[in-house]
Design a protein around this nucleic acid. Structure first.
Lengths: 163, 163
DNA sequence: CTCAGTGCAAAGGATTTGCATGCCG
DNA sequence: CGGCATGCAAATCCTTTGCACTGAG
C-alpha cells in the first residue's frame, strides 16, 4: 500500500511539528547536495501554515519577498527531495503542499467554483480495501504502482450560497 | 452519488455503440442550439476509437485535417454539452475522453513516465462504499458533491522495461 | 439571409530558463 | 575559492481569442 515506505509516518496533517518538517527538509536536501536556504525554509513554513494545498499566487500573497522564479525553482527542488508534492486540480495554477510522508496520507475535496481545496481522510478500513484493490489492478495491468489519489469534486457552501 | 443521473447508464467503455454516441451528441448539441458538424463528429470518433483519454497532439496525429483551434473549441463545446470530459493528469497537455454518461463510470491508471492513461474500474461493492463515504464527507464539509475521481499512478511495463 | 462553425494568425498566461551576481561552506 | 542559490528578464508552449470567411438551413 501507499504507506509502505512510511511505516511510522503520521496519519493526519497535524501530527508532525514544524521542527520535524524542517529537520526532514534539511536532511533530504543535504542528501541531494542542496542547501536548506531561508527562501526554501520560508516556502515550507507557508505550506505548513496553510494546512491545505496552495497555488503560487497564494504563496506570493503570504510571502511577497519570494521571487516568483525562485519559488517555482525551490518548489521543484523540494518536490524532487520528497518534501513537497504538486497537485493538478485542473485550474490555471498548480497546487503545492507538504508531502504525504510528512503530513500523512490523505485525499482532496475540491470546489468546482472557487477551486479551493481541503484535505480529507477516508476511514482506514476503506482506505485499506481501496489500496488492496488498486494494487491488484496495477498488477494485472503490469504496472509498478507508486501512489493513488481520490478527489471529491463539488461546490463549497460559500459558493452554493452565492448562487 | 455519482451515478444518480446515470441509473441506466453503461458500465464499461464498450457498452455503448458509436451510433448511440453520435445520437446522443446530436441531441445534446441541438438542445444547446449547436450543430453536430463533421469536425465534431470526427472528434467524437477519434475519442471513441482511442478508448482511453487522449491529448491534443494525439488527436492531431489521428486526424491531421482538424485545425488545432477548432479542435479546442469543439472539445469545449462538447464538454459543455456533456459529451466529452477533460482530465487533468498533470502533464503539459490536458486529456479528453467521452463523458462517463456515455462510456460509464470509471477511473484512471496513469504512467508517471510516459503519461499514458488507461481506464480502470473498481468492483461495484467498493465503488458503492467509496461513493457512500464520500457523500458523507461532503455533507459534513457542507459541500454539494458532483463527482469523484480515483487515479492510480505507477510505471507501465514498457517504461519499467526501458529502465 | 442569418448565424453557427472554421482556420489562420496573434494574444494570453502559467511555468521555465539564461545569465550575471550573491552567498554559504 | 567553488558551486549552489537568487532575481530579473526573456523565452516556452499550451490554450484561448479576434476576425474574416464559409456553409447549412
Amino acid at each position: 500500500m501507499a504507506s509502505a515506505t512510511n511505516e511510522s509516518g503520521p496519519t493526519n496533517a497535524d501530527t508532525v511539528g514544524l521542527d520535524v518538517v524542517h529537520a526532514e527538509a534539511t536532511a533530504r536536501l543535504q542528501e541531494a547536495g542542496q542547501r536548506y536556504t531561508s527562501g526554501r525554509r520560508r516556502l515550507v513554513e507557508v505550506l505548513a501554515a496553510a494546512a491545505r494545498p496552495v497555488r503560487l499566487p497564494d504563496i506570493e500573497a503570504l510571502a511577497p519577498d519570494l521571487a516568483r522564479s525562485s519559488a517555482y525553482r525551490n518548489l521543484e527542488a523540494l518536490e524532487r527531495c520528497g518534501v513537497v508534492e504538486r497537485l493538478n486540480a485542473g485550474g490555471d495554477h498548480a497546487y503545492f503542499e507538504l508531502a504525504e510522508s510528512l503530513i500523512g496520507h490523505h485525499h482532496h475535496l475540491i470546489c468546482e467554483d472557487c477551486s479551493e481545496i481541503a484535505d480529507i481522510e477516508l476511514d482506514s478500513a476503506l482506505e485499506h480495501r481501496l489500496a488492496g484493490t488498486l494494487a491488484a489492478i496495477a498488477d494485472v495491468a503490469g504496472y509498478v504502482p507508486s501512489h493513488h489519489s481520490v478527489d471529491l469534486y463539488g461546490r463549497c457552501s460559500r459558493c452554493v450560497a452565492a448562487g
